[in-house]
Design a protein around this nucleic acid. Structure first.
Lengths: 232, 232
DNA sequence: ACCTGAACACCGTTCAAGT
DNA sequence: ACCTGAACACCGTTCAAGT
């Protein structure tokens, strides 16, 4: 059926909004969000940067678009759980951890979502699904609203980390030296570091296991909500 | 004592790292972090952008510097509570809410802290104080560590909001129209909006009171930690 | 020792010109 | 209808030149 199956087809495939958004996500995934420039994106598509403007309004439009694509990916990953159990807590927990798996492939996404002034319909649909789980589980509108705030970015499976070391998985030498030098002014951090060292002797750095900490915090919040819910 | 008290003194005051950092913070507070460019900063100081490089290494150095200044402001606002009560929970709560007051004056700060690769000593001292409150309150090193993760950016008094409307306190018309158009696909958000409207009839926008939601979430986490602490 | 002007290598974006 | 080259107004930063 395919009349053109050689590799050069890709290069000849005409530009489109969808191809631009896919390439933009690839670029951000592989090289980080800072590498997502119009000129870089054009190069990846074998085209001049200015050609992109025939298919998207501007860079903001691209950022809006890739957020929608990722949110749809989350929604797809998550629908299988909808109504899968009568239990709001386990259902919500599984939904959030599934969304987290998607976002771990697109670590730039929470930061970009944060900067959008207009709202994304797919993101709102994701949120709507979360509130739906709570409401069907018997939460009042009010407590459901509070719950969304308490979960914060964790509702999409992400901890907006102060000092997230996802970029460079190690503490750089300058910081390590500074820590060393000022341990006397940081007695409790020194103690914590010592304890972490005890567990994993050859790294001052890998103090924290992201997934473990995420689930700890998520469960802490879910347990708190459960108690408030039971008391209401 | 002052031989020169006229207003032009400020303009003649020689440049220094401190003056540059103060001006940078003013600029970011007043016009947002995007307005903090070397040329803008130079203009505010009555000097060419290139002169700044005599006193700071580069822009990264300025960002590092203003984070330190703000963190020191937080530490100053917070020391009065240290050891003020034997009760870790109320002490930590007051500390975080005091830090929050500082950060509400410098809303750009959490975002900048997040992008620093090197660690700030004043920020670490703030964290150290938090862990200290927990440890003196009887928390194990491990539970103290988990607690820091659970609090996340809230430990410095800030909710890293998805869609924080601090910039434009209103939902823009495009988003409002989109919400209107797709209410059928967002049944639970529609319900929430209706409830919020009921409370405050003339705004689809002011759904949430930041301070209320912050304290709700903070107390939820503190209560959860208290329970884990009691069980340990 | 400190400040400046011109320049460089990047941005996003516009627009007239090509096919 | 789509793509391009040159250009514009911005970035951060370097460097030789001024005082």
């Amino acid at each position: 059926m395919a009349t053109r199956t050689d590799e050069s087809v890709a290069a000849r495939t005409p530009l489109s909004r969808d191809r631009i958004l896919s390439a933009a996500i690839e670029l951000a995934d592989e090289e980080g969000i800072d590498a997502l420039t119009m000129r870089n994106l054009g190069r990846r598509l074998g085209v001049e940067a200015m050609s992109l403007y025939n298919h998207v309004d501007n860079k903001e439009d691209i950022l809006d678009g890739i957020v929608d694509v990722v949110a749809n990916e989350m929604n797809a990953a998550v629908t299988e759980f909808d109504g899968s159990s009568g239990e709001w807590k386990s259902e919500l927990r599984r939904r959030i951890l599934a969304a987290r798996q998607v976002l771990l492939r697109h670590k730039w996404a929470p930061g970009v979502i944060e900067t959008r002034s207009a709202m994304s319909l797919p993101v709102l649909e994701y949120y709507d699904g979360v509130i739906g789980i709570l409401r069907r589980g018997g939460f009042s509108v009010d407590l459901g609203h509070h719950a969304m705030h308490a979960l914060g970015s964790r509702v999409i499976g992400f901890t907006q980390e102060l000092y997230d070391d996802s970029q460079n998985d190690t503490i750089d030498e300058a910081s390590a030296a500074m820590l060393e030098r000022h341990m006397d002014r940081l007695p409790y951090i020194a103690e914590l570091a010592a304890a972490a060292l005890h567990v994993d002797p050859d790294s001052t750095l890998g103090w924290c296991d992201d997934q473990t900490e995420f689930e700890f915090s998520l469960d802490l919040i879910l347990d708190g909500l459960e108690r408030l819910h039971a008391a209401s």
